[in-house]
Write a protein that binds this DNA or RNA. Structure first.
Length: 586
DNA sequence: AAACACGGCGCG
DNA sequence: AAAGCGCGCCGTGTTT
């Protein structure tokens, strides 16, 4: 019989793929018996405690329970210098918490234990007093650290004893939980692989942006006749609304002060064209791009590889997130409304000897919307492989669309596509009409026709909002319960679609990872998930069998039988960097 | 010095 | 009556 024990590691920092190392761990059994095991202080205890560590992870006699297992397992693997995650059964109380209370303000160990059992949180401040840069706990006096570790081990087992029965209660939730634990392992291998920075390109981009940023600043100061810091909204405010006496067309949400954001500048550009508007926009874009690119240089390992921290439960919708750095929002070029983009994706490249494939679900949000609302016309279009956004464009733009050139039609279709989502996610007809550039009366007439043509799609938002209002949550097709913020019931649709897409991608990652592990011995591997996309790396040596492997991956990614509409993926190949991708047809 | 709020901006 | 959503990161400005 396996023995459940909580397991918590202490490290010299968070950069486990860099300098940081584990120096201690603690355990606690369900009876409340704790052990504190230092691996740094004296040689005898180090040998003894390492033996105990190996007993936990190498004998199959224990089921370690962790709060954020990805971190503890990564630290432990580094210490033992071998992979262990695939060979053990484990639990994660952080994931349990996310699954049971997606809307909870905090899933931190200390917060949860305080709320559940009133365990005081002041041990953190007692220890933090000895921590200089905020993450190296090895310098804290041992007796104080002992007390701290004891408490964390107790908290973790407590949380498990409280949460896990609730997870097991619901068969579907338990299935999701198992998928989440599998994803922890999948994600560990991605972070370990990491992503290669094109370091010289990155530096070149930074140099280039430094000059362009300086130029923009010079022009701004010349035009305004005084020193300006465009990073201060107060300066921009003075410049636009006092010095140049432009009208205030937009205000900020929380404090209702005059907005100086890109949309406000674009609005002013229409009514009060002025070179200062361009230069401010340039400065902001180049400045941001520059600092972000600079931050990448500080995050590379000795091989120019970046190991990001991927949070498998980063969002209240079940989505993942990524930090240090966030590789899910790297700027790309060719985006409408961004006139001065920074080609930041040039800074990422396949490792030497590899190519990258970017595989993304095509139109997954729309497909899921159609599945959930069951709009007959749209279900039919998707099953025939047709264009679901065309009818919307025809309705919203009327003759303007019918008489437009092919190129113009494409633009209008893109606008209609955004409108489809905006409407489904709760935007008002008036607001959507405005962004489409329609006269208010025309907009109302067109939307009337839109509602009559797609009654079920149009009604989905209201139906889900009322469901959320009534029971406080909505459920995805996989059985994940998503509580929806009170007094914002209209976000229910977004939660449902975003949450379902997240679950699809999570399952896809596990399937693909397992397949690649078995079929290519891990030579091919996933690097990163980006909400509806995975990026994989592929050795050039193996390119002979690439079409076969990609076909298998595609089959795994679209194999979800529960939907009324088919799923599909598109593939792009990057051979040099992430900016220059080419469509790849199987 | 650290923590927090805000405006702003990139992605899906 | 009116409402797109979810993240992480940056710089500024205020509070502790």
């Amino acid at each position: 019989m396996k023995k459940v024990i909580s397991y918590d590691t202490e490290t010299t920092g968070f950069a486990l793929h860099g300098e940081s190392k584990m120096f201690s761990f603690s355990t606690c059994d369900p009876g409340g018996n704790t052990k504190i095991c230092r691996l740094d202080k004296c040689k005898v205890s180090k040998i003894k405690n390492t033996k105990y560590l190996k007993k936990i992870f190498e004998t199959s006699r224990f089921i370690p329970v962790m709060h954020n297992a990805k971190f503890d397992l990564t630290a432990t693997e580094k210490y033992l210098q071998k992979h262990i995650a695939e060979d053990i059964v484990f639990h994660d109380t952080s994931i349990q918490s996310h699954l049971l209370m997606n809307d909870h303000p905090s899933h931190r160990l200390k917060e949860l234990a305080y709320e559940l059992a009133g365990i005081k949180r002041d041990d953190e401040t007692l220890v933090k007093a000895f921590v200089k840069d905020g993450s190296d706990y090895s310098k804290v006096p041992v007796d104080r650290m002992d007390a701290y570790q004891k408490l964390d081990a107790e908290r973790t087992i407590l949380l498990h004893l409280f949460f896990y029965p609730k997870i097991k209660e619901d068969k579907k939730v338990n299935e999701i939980y198992k998928e989440e634990l599998e994803l922890v392992k999948t994600t560990m291998r991605m972070e370990e692989r990491g992503i290669m920075l094109h370091r010289n390109r990155c530096k070149k981009l930074i140099d280039d942006l430094t000059t362009k940023r300086e130029n923009a600043l010079e022009k701004i100061e010349h035009l305004s006749g005084r020193r300006i810091n465009p990073d201060k909204t107060s300066h921009i405010e003075w410049l636009l609304f006092e010095k140049f006496e432009m009208p205030i067309l937009k205000r900020t949400k929380k404090t209702s002060s005059p907005s100086t954001d890109k949309e406000a500048l674009n609005l002013l550009r229409e009514t009060n064209p002025h070179p200062i508007l361009e230069e401010i926009t340039k400065f902001k874009s180049f400045s941001r791009g520059r600092t972000i690119l600079k931050s990448y240089l500080g995050l590379v390992d000795e091989n120019d590889v970046i190991h990001p921290d991927i949070n498998t439960n980063g969002a209240s919708t079940g989505r993942e997130s990524c930090k240090n750095p966030n590789l899910q929002n790297v700027e790309k070029t060719g985006v409408l409304l961004n006139r001065y983009p920074v080609p930041a994706r040039q800074a990422f490249r396949p490792r030497p000897g590899y190519v990258n494939f970017h595989i993304d679900y095509s139109g997954i949000e729309m497909r899921l919307l159609v599945h959930y609302c069951q709009e007959p016309l749209l279900v039919k279009i998707l099953n025939k492989g047709g264009d679901v956004h065309r009818p919307g464009a025809e309705i919203l733009f009327g003759d303007e669309f019918k008489n437009a050139s092919k190129k113009k039609q494409k633009t209008l279709r893109g606008a209609a596509k955004n409108a489809n989502f905006a409407i489904a996610y709760g935007a008002s007809a008036l607001k959507v009409g405005k962004t489409l550039g329609l006269d208010a009366n025309v907009a109302l007439r067109r939307f009337d026709l839109y509602y009559r043509t797609f009654p079920k799609l149009s009604f989905l938002g209201r139906a889900l909002a009322s469901e959320a209002k009534q029971q406080g949550y909505i459920k995805t097709i996989f059985g994940r319960c998503l509580r929806v913020p009170e007094n914002k019931n209209y976000v229910a649709t977004n939660y449902l679609i975003q949450g379902t897409a997240a679950e699809i991608l999570k399952r896809a990652q596990n399937r693909v990872h397992k397949y690649l592990q078995q079929a290519t011995s891990g030579e091919v591997g996933i690097l990163l998930p980006i909400h509806d996309e995975i990026i994989i790396e592929y050795p050039r040596k193996r390119l002979k069998d690439v079409d076969h492997v990609l076909k298998e991956i595609k089959a795994l990614m679209v194999a979800f039988e529960m939907f009324l509409v088919p799923l599909d993926v598109e593939i792009e190949i990057a051979t040099y960097d992430w900016e220059h991708k080419k469509r790849y047809t199987l």
